[in-house]
């Protein structure tokens, strides 16, 4: 699946494709054993500006362990105006997150064991809890909250199904099959 020559392997076991576009990599944290495929784009440069002017430990994107970012997906921190100030906010992904091909993720928080389908759009500042499956082609409106154990579909995305208790294992299996 991952040819050695195309992927760079880091010390923590992350496999990053050489053809991916990772900007601002010093602001990105990868948990470990994460795979990033070709043409993937991670905007670590869009980070919150610390008023002191130092970009000390300003993490833009934190990705958990065993994640899988498919081809052509895009991770971008969300931004908004709060109290007159416009800034970018950090984005956090949990463990075992699978992002499908071509999906654009601008969520604020994504929990663990989340499967995002192909060509999805996750709106700004959405919060996705654990054990969620997002079907292909879903658009999730900004500021929405997806509770655990749901399956989301549609445009805008609404919860259509409640996943059974075995959701964590099944989602992990789907991830491993990729």
């Amino acid at each position: 699946m991952s040819q050695k020559s195309e992927y760079i392997q880091t010390e923590t076991g992350n496999k990053v494709s050489r053809k991916s576009l990772i900007i601002g990599s010093q602001n990105i944290i990868l948990g470990g054993k994460t795979i990033i495929q070709a043409d993937c784009c991670i905007r670590g440069d869009l980070r919150r500006l610390v008023p002191q002017g130092q970009n000390a430990a300003a993490v833009a994107i934190a990705v958990g362990r065993y994640c899988f970012l498919s081809k052509s997906c895009l991770l971008r921190p969300p931004s908004k105006t709060y109290r007159g100030q416009f800034s970018y906010y950090p984005m956090k992904l949990g463990d075992h997150v699978f992002v499908g091909e071509g999906s654009v993720v601008e969520a604020a928080v994504i929990g663990s064991y989340v499967n995002i389908g192909k060509n999805c759009v996750i709106g700004k500042f959405s919060i996705i809890k654990d054990c969620v499956r997002i079907e292909d082609g879903t658009v999730i409106a900004p500021n929405s909250v997806i509770p655990s154990f749901s399956s989301v579909e549609g445009h805008p995305g609404i919860v259509v199904e409640e996943l059974p208790e075995t959701a964590a294992e099944m989602l992990e299996r789907e991830l491993n099959h990729q």
Partner: peptide, 16 residues
């Protein structure tokens, strides 16, 4: 105006 508490009447707004 930082530390701005928005005043005035409010609306409910759908971002989609």
């Amino acid at each position: 105006s930082s530390s701005d508490h928005p005043t005035g009447p409010f609306n409910l707004f759908c971002s989609h």
